[in-house]
Design a protein around this nucleic acid. Structure first.
Lengths: 347, 347
DNA sequence: CTGAAAGCGCTAACAG
DNA sequence: CTGTTAGCGCTTTCAG
């Protein structure tokens, strides 16, 4: 009955339990998967022995048989950036709650590495792949079309082909910030942008639109864009203010693409003896709790990475749950405005 | 030869390639695993077809056969804390370089959840488990002894039993900070601690020792320990300074358990018109690049989470590489001091 | 309610 | 250099 008579104990298998209890391994299997056609008594005996022997089902064998791995892949461009780790956090949390394991890879912002990671993940037979990609979807299509695992794009560059995706309403970010400053009475709004952000220009466009909507002129000379990129985010804010204050028109509101940049801006303003928000209102982006609650609490646009992660995880689960045609679904999560002291003045 | 004649194409298997090329699947297998006993010509033909068909080996089947999954588990207490995400980052990076996949779980600082996550990870047949645990090793021993996968403890509470581990030399943290302040001439050193840190009291002890060594008295009234814990790290620093300044002796150096706390301390000092580092030197802990380079650049104790992660990954790989007895190995990584403006004064 | 047979896709150990 | 045989541990299917 048992196929390994006098061998040394390797790892506990179903057969061991079955032999112990004079049952067939089928019965063990049924108990473990909660099928109902087992007597309560047998069930109890099995569970008891399972516990005693610390039996753990072999997932490789199960996967091989069922064709499902209960494993979902997650590829992000970076594990240093809080946006992505925050998103990863909620994704892992939600997928684990549904008993999926999560295999994590970082592409380090390198398209070639990203490609390799995706290849690997697919060969691990992940049931689905959640991908925060840095490259165009067209190339990804190549890689992934030979796999039947659903692919969920998240925080990606604008999609070239129809696909499942969860994204931030990037246009709304600039809109929210600009509109808010207009509401609190700013007439001369400046902005400070980094070079990094893929959708920065998009936001800028919307920023212009928002200004226009409020009947304000867009002043190119009041848009500070970092070119080089060697300076830190904080420093960028400091430098930007120094330039701005040298200009002919002094701004009365500043939009920053990053909370840290906003801190730099605020420090530089304080150093120049300018009152916030009375003389100049400042708003950041990211809503990092640690950064926003220092000194002059910073108003910021929450980029909802947690919610985006949650939506992505749920979308993945939904795609795996139904055998139905699984229609392509695109979710857009809106950013939200968190108002704090740095813009707190009456319009 | 082919076992599925007229079926619709599911997923490409070795057999498909073999049939295509009039070979046996063994040959394909050999090519894919880089065995040398295959003619260059056949090898080329195989690889070509593999590429054409986008063939990806089924890892579940391979694992079932070989008993190795090439998957390593990682359980951390949190994915919000930069210490752990930083560590996770390097762990993932190094394990991926060695072609291992990494299954990530977060225990959310909950011992019960941690236990469940460990159970799960083991049932996934991970080849090794890297564990940043929040509970005593004794209980973990229970869980893991029935598994033959090597276990690597990382950043854990002091081990009760011999095990593979990579830890921070926690005692050195207090020592480094205190010693540094003494060196730059501080005579009245205060410290600000949070309630969270498991090894906080250990560090405190060493801090006292370091003071004693320098011939200074330890002043209990100059040790501010947060009790409640509702206040933010930053706020804790602010509040601590307010208390300290009310005391009879004014400190000339402050050790903070967190960089953010140190920022709070520095802000409060500035608000009180006190010069840093001239009147009071401040040192933090964590060496968070984003936080340390603002305004008055902050001296800080680097907790080396990246190095700890790297060591843990390498240890895991080493344990998996040898069949040798694999002696238990404990690594202790030393923190390092990063001096910046906030303590820059001559002794 | 319980069990016997078959096989998921791959690879170790040999034959030819 | 290439192929044959056997079976990893589990679950699906169908009979008792």
């Amino acid at each position: 009955m048992d196929k390994r008579p006098g061998e040394r104990p390797t790892t506990v298998r179903m057969q061991d339990i079955a032999t112990d209890l004079n049952l067939s391994k089928m019965t063990i299997s049924k108990v473990l998967r909660g099928q109902m056609d087992v007597s309560a008594k047998t069930k109890a005996r099995v569970l008891q022995r399972v516990k005693e022997l610390h039996y753990r089902p072999n997932i490789s064998a199960r996967s091989l048989r069922t064709g499902r791995t209960l494993n979902i892949g997650l590829v992000v461009p970076s594990l240093s950036d809080p946006t992505y780790t925050g998103m990863a956090r909620t994704i892992v949390q939600h997928l684990r709650m549904a008993d999926y394991s999560v295999s994590l890879s970082s592409a380090e912002f390198d398209p070639e590495l990203e490609r390799r990671e995706i290849e690997q993940q697919l060969s691990w037979q992940v049931d689905a792949l959640i991908l925060a990609s840095v490259q165009s979807s067209a190339e990804l299509l190549q890689l992934t079309k030979s796999s039947q695992a659903p692919l969920i794009h998240v925080l990606s560059v604008p999609n070239l082909f129809k696909s499942n995706s969860v994204d931030l309403g990037g246009e709304e970010v600039g809109h929210l910030a600009a509109n808010h400053l207009v509401r609190v009475g700013c007439k001369r709004i400046a902005s400070v942008c980094g070079p990094r952000s893929l959708s920065a220009d998009l936001r800028l466009k919307v920023f212009r639109a928002a200004l226009a909507e409020a009947g304000q002129t867009f002043r190119p000379e009041m848009t500070m864009t970092a070119d080089g990129g060697t300076t830190s985010e904080y420093e960028r804010g400091v430098v930007a203010v120094q330039s701005l204050l040298k200009g002919k028109v002094r701004p009365d509101g500043i939009i920053c693409d990053t909370d840290l940049t906003a801190l730099g801006v605020m420090d530089a303003l304080c150093a120049a003896g300018i009152e916030i928000p009375k003389e100049i209102a400042v708003i950041g982006c990211g809503n990092d709790a640690r950064l926003c609650e220092m000194r002059i609490p910073l108003s910021s646009v929450e980029l909802s990475s947690a919610e985006i992660g949650e939506r992505a995880a749920k979308l993945a689960l939904k795609l795996l749950a139904k055998d139905k045609p699984a229609k392509v679904k695109s979710v857009v999560v809106s950013p939200t405005l968190v108002v704090r002291a740095s813009t707190a003045r009456s319009g």
